[in-house]
Design a binder for these strands. Structure first.
Lengths: 223, 223
DNA sequence: CCATAAATACTCCGTTTGGGTGATGTTTTA
DNA sequence: TAAAACATCACCCAAACGGAGTATTTATGG
């Protein structure tokens, strides 16, 4: 046993079976890492986390964004709330501004694209433990732009998901269980407009159903 | 001005236009009542309540159960949370056990059927102010039966809405935004069964859409 | 002044939902 | 033991929803 170099405890949350398997296999080659938790969904992750919390604590989580049920951004929010000491790297194919922005907002401290070479992934994990914030170059570019453009928003963080006032008003009614038609009548708009708004709301919140939107909105006090 | 007999401040929450109008007109004939708030929905009620809270405080609310958006039971829950001193009479056509039970659970202290003669309604309001619990006779009968049959449940109030374990499991997945098919795959049941469960859940919760179910479930910690 | 965002309205299309109805077997419990 | 819940599966139908477009108007700000 090598006592002077403690291994870094790593978790993978990834729903794609083959990808998860290959990534796990690869990480096993790196002797200063210990892959101590592998999950295929956020629920699975939290379940396993609660069962293994007596063991050595987790250091870093590689979190996929697109997950069934609870997505990676939500899961990150939840994990940071309950275990702020664990570092989270979003590990994903997405490089759109909203997902990056949201990830940072909810507390991820790294953002790697999935095509990152495995050596770089491992280095990122080590940097993370040293207090760094490993980010893929193309992502870093976007982050800098966001810091320039959305500085106020990033600082205040007042309006989650950047919903416009009209969208918020409509979202509130969605939360109340109303149909598009009912909402339309209430706000004196055509049902199609309401639909358009809702579609835009979904885009911003990264959900695709009313139920998911309601849950997210209630979880992050948008009401 | 008659100082020795202060008038009782009454509110009506009722979405049916004509019914609300007629009821308002009738109550105006009773000089010891003051109809100080009339609303056609829960949202309208809370909005008006917050604007008039400087005036004389409300004493009694006549609350319809079937309301657009937030239903009367939910509204009662909310009102009792924020204004526990206000007495609420459920004023409705429903006399099914679940609604009665739910109404009592959320804090209503009266339950009148809508065909109650106006004189009796007014008496009920006065009794309410005296600390009574005016209940229509046919409702009272049911309440007694419930006290006999559901005593434990009524006392512990552990499981809101009396959802069965299977139903709770499915509801949790609805909250996560999954479709019936996805839920079916997860719990190894046919989509038809999932649908049946969800329909039963709706019946018990008195909602008719996923969004409404999610909102209610999150509001009353079923998760 | 022009780019951009927001709000508005509409179409097409396939999927999902929700309501109604019905059936069968098991478990609980009154 | 008989009635009541629970769980399971199935089908029909209409309404609602969600995704992907297109397009006009109006602010707003750089």
């Amino acid at each position: 046993m090598d006592l002077e170099v403690p291994r870094i405890n790593v978790a993978i949350v990834e729903d794609h079976d083959i990808f998860r398997k290959r990534l796990s296999e690869l990480l096993y080659f790196y002797k200063d890492l210990k892959l101590s938790l592998v999950a295929d969904s956020a629920e699975d992750f939290f379940e396993k986390l609660s069962r293994t919390q007596n063991d050595e604590p987790l250091d870093v989580v590689l979190m996929d964004i697109e997950l069934p049920g609870i997505n990676g951004i939500e899961a990150t929010f939840e994990l940071k709330r309950t275990h702020p000491e664990i570092d989270i790297i979003m590990f994903t194919v997405f490089e759109d501004d909203e997902r990056i922005f949201d990830s940072i907002q909810v507390g991820a401290t790294g953002y790697l694209l999935k095509d990152t070479p495995i050596d770089d992934v491992v280095n990122a994990i080590k940097e993370m433990k040293e207090g760094g914030s490993p980010i893929s170059p193309s992502i870093a570019r976007r982050v800098f732009e966001m810091m320039r453009n959305h500085k106020e928003k990033a600082e205040t963080g007042e309006v989650p998901f950047d919903l416009s006032p009209a969208e918020i008003k409509i979202l509130e009614q969605v939360i109340e269980g109303k149909t598009n038609k009912e909402i339309a009548e209430d706000v004196f708009l055509s049902p199609w407009t309401v639909k358009t708004h809702i579609k835009n709301i979904y885009k911003k919140m990264h959900v695709n159903s009313r139920a998911a939107a309601v849950r997210l909105a209630l979880k992050r006090n948008i009401v």
